[in-house]
């Protein structure tokens, strides 16, 4: 019998003759593992604390608002529910819980992007038929799914309660579904941005601090400037300034495109032209970090 080509020693082991799975299966399994790791599943007990604690705290405001809707219904005051702005301001929810969302992203992005680069295990991933782009997109997809889950599940509970409380369902539905679009854009931006910082710093502790500082300090600067611009009735300054933080930029996109109430009274209402501009800005916020991330991973895997 002739030896199969390219075999140096045949010491009699049985070769694998089954069907080999392709890139799709590898990507699916990487996605599932990454998603589980975002919530600390399959990791140590300590790393389950932060994700589930944040999810629990995120539930509180949504449950309180839902409870208020039930209470209004019980008191036969459902018709007056639209007098209370916060009860239907769905995009206000991710806007005002931005600290929690930031902490979640900052804690989980390094898990997905920093550790593989730090310990050079990244080369093991690329020993499989998995391209750099697919790796980055799958990891990002897992982070996006996790972030979307912690924001959208509380909002969905709140909306479901609102539908049973006989309030103005038209307004509630409009605000809820437009806010959902906003949440999708927002989590894409947050995931891409925090993933980029995690991949650039590579040290987990430093990456967490860097992500929190980058997002919260810009948020603080933007809020202070918005306050000053609002006080001095300078609408253009407010519109320009809002582009420099993901939360305000996406809030402006949602209010501009769908004419829903703004989550922060200091945010000036954008015109149609500005709404288009914010769509471009949101796209830059997403594509820029993804591009940097791809370059970084490509460079790491080239070594």
């Amino acid at each position: 019998m002739s030896q199969p080509h390219g075999v140096i020693h045949d010491i009699g082991y049985r070769p694998f003759t089954g069907r080999r799975q392709g890139t799709g299966a590898i990507a699916a399994s990487l996605y599932l593992t990454s998603l589980r790791h975002c919530f600390g599943l399959g990791r140590s007990g300590k790393s389950k604390v932060i994700p589930f604690l944040i999810f629990a705290i995120m539930l509180i405001p949504a449950l309180v608002l839902a409870g208020m809707l039930i209470q209004l219904h019980k008191m036969s005051m459902s018709s007056q529910a639209d007098l209370f702005g916060p009860l239907s301001n769905y995009f206000g929810y991710p806007y005002w819980t931005q600290l929690l969302i930031t902490i979640f992203a900052a804690a989980q992005a390094p898990v997905l992007f920093a550790r593989d680069l730090r310990y050079r295990t990244i080369v093991l991933y690329f020993a499989r038929p998995l391209s750099r782009a697919v790796y980055v997109l799958v990891r990002l997809g897992a982070l996006v799914t996790a972030l979307f889950a912690i924001i959208a599940i509380p909002m969905a509970i709140w909306y479901a309660v609102a539908l049973t409380a006989y309030v103005d369902t038209g307004e509630q539905s409009h605000n809820f579904w437009t806010a959902m679009v906003g949440v999708v854009v927002l989590v894409l931006v947050i995931a891409a941005f925090s993933g980029m910082i995690a991949a650039l710093t590579t040290r987990a502790g430093l990456a967490v601090a860097a992500i929190i500082i980058a997002l919260m300090v810009t948020s603080g600067i933007v809020t202070a400037l918005l306050g000053a611009a609002h006080g001095s009735h300078n609408g253009t300054l407010g519109l320009v300034v809002a582009a420099f933080n993901p939360f305000t930029a996406v809030a402006q996109l949602v209010t501009g495109v769908f004419t829903t109430p703004a989550p922060n009274p200091d945010l000036p209402h954008p015109s149609a032209a500005w709404a288009t501009a914010y769509a471009v800005i949101a796209l830059v916020w997403i594509l820029g970090p993804v591009w940097v991330l791809l370059l970084r991973i490509r460079k790491a895997a080239a070594l």
Partner: peptide, 14 residues
């Protein structure tokens, strides 16, 4: 330079 209508109180809160 940009905000002409800014009061001193706004500056202080900034």
């Amino acid at each position: 330079s940009v905000s002409t209508g800014m009061t001193d109180a706004d500056a202080q809160s900034f």
